[in-house]
């Protein structure tokens, strides 16, 4: 599965356009990590726990998008975008969406 955020893939031809696919995940923050984050808010600096958490959840969103694309027979997802929104205090949604296509070698 080829994932990319440009509209055309160099050296490949899009044979089928299969529509929008998306994957999302909602994550709440970890109580222990939040305690550390509260301390870090005094001292400043990177919150490594949160960086990892968000990276994992973004990967999860991408994986769900890939599952959806495979189900409709795509071999690539192009024009992928990420979006993050805070839906409740302490929880955020991460969404990945893109266009599922079938590619052929030119």
């Amino acid at each position: 599965m080829l994932i990319s955020n440009i509209e055309v893939i160099p050296g490949k031809r899009i044979t089928d356009h299969l529509g929008l696919v998306q994957g999302s995940t909602v994550r709440a923050k970890h109580a222990g990590k939040d305690l550390m984050a509260g301390l870090k808010n005094i001292f400043g600096g990177e919150l490594q726990g949160y960086t990892e958490l968000l990276q994992e959840s973004r990967q999860e969103a991408v994986d769900r998008m890939i599952v959806q694309a495979q189900a409709i027979g795509a071999n690539a997802i192009i024009n992928v975008r990420f979006s993050t929104s805070a839906i409740a205090a302490g929880a955020s949604e991460i969404l990945a969406y893109g266009t599922a296509v079938r590619l052929n070698d030119r």
Binding site: L2, N5, P10, G11, A37, G44
Partner: peptide, 25 residues
Amino acid sequence: KLPAPEFISHDSGMVTGNVVISVDY
């Protein structure tokens, strides 16, 4: 959006980088 002519026959793949930074008091 489009690759420059010298990169036209390269393979493509998505890369990401993220960071969470906290303010200090």
